[in-house]
């Protein structure tokens, strides 16, 4: 195993479709909720502790070997917005494509056969981390970081926010990201013993509602 694979997987340039998504930031910008670095930080903090935590737990559980079908159903149950469910599966499919070309192996081929239209992205992320020789904690870090990295990058494009301010936000969120990743792995281990109900179900209703509004909107820059 090589830890360096984590850098590859967590890199925003990994070609898995993420660049077309803002993680709810575009909707929040439109609603006047993100206007500067401070409000971006609050938005990201909320996201990290809700959908970020859930995604990190799903990813860690998948990397631990919890059944991806169970995890995909658990992800559905934790994602009320149909638009977000569809986007998560699309991103899962795109990630799987990129990962199968990057780390070819039977496990990922099997996953692609089982979910031809994609499984939830964090579930795929966990399986990919495993295929790349990474640990469940690495998968959790990846998912947690992604949950805030995407909105930060998108906000730079949407608001013309100073890119240094945006990276500062991510740096200040680092300690919280550590805690979320740890918590996610503990929950994933519990899920391995007792089933997927042990995974956190923290939700941010506003993210779900605004995702639906965003999906119905014409003239958007990002898919979600």
């Amino acid at each position: 195993m090589t830890r360096a694979a984590l850098l590859l997987l967590a890199d925003g340039r990994f070609p898995a479709g993420g660049h077309a998504h803002s993680g709810g930031a575009e909707a929040a910008v439109r609603a006047g909720l993100i206007t500067d670095a401070a409000s971006l930080e609050e938005f990201c903090r909320g996201r990290l502790h809700t959908s970020g935590l859930v995604a990190a737990s799903l990813a860690a559980a998948a990397a631990l070997g919890v059944d991806p079908g169970d995890l995909d159903a658990a992800a559905d149950a934790r994602t009320p917005s149909p638009a977000l469910r569809a986007a998560a599966r699309r991103l899962g499919r795109q990630l799987l494509r990129a990962a199968r070309a990057t780390w070819p192996c039977a496990g990922l081929d099997l996953l692609a056969r089982r979910f031809p239209k994609g499984a939830h992205q964090p579930v795929v992320l966990g399986a990919v981390a495993q295929a790349a020789g990474l640990e469940p904690l690495d998968a959790a870090y990846c998912a947690a970081y992604e949950s805030v990295g995407g909105p930060a990058t998108a906000t730079v494009r949407l608001l013309g926010l100073d890119p240094f301010d945006a990276t500062g936000v991510l740096a200040r969120l680092a300690p919280a990201t550590d805690r979320v990743a740890d918590r996610a792995v503990r929950a994933a281990r519990e899920a391995l013993d007792t089933g997927v109900d042990a995974l956190p179900a923290a939700s941010a209703p506003l993210l779900e509602i605004s995702a639906e509004v965003h999906a119905a909107r014409t003239g958007r820059l990002f898919a979600t």
Partner: peptide, 19 residues
């Protein structure tokens, strides 16, 4: 959909187009 970056979708990250 290309997320404010049309060249990315056809060059750097082609996954959505391949799909």
């Amino acid at each position: 959909e290309t997320g404010a970056c049309p060249h990315t979708a056809i060059r750097d990250d082609i996954s959505a187009n391949l799909e």
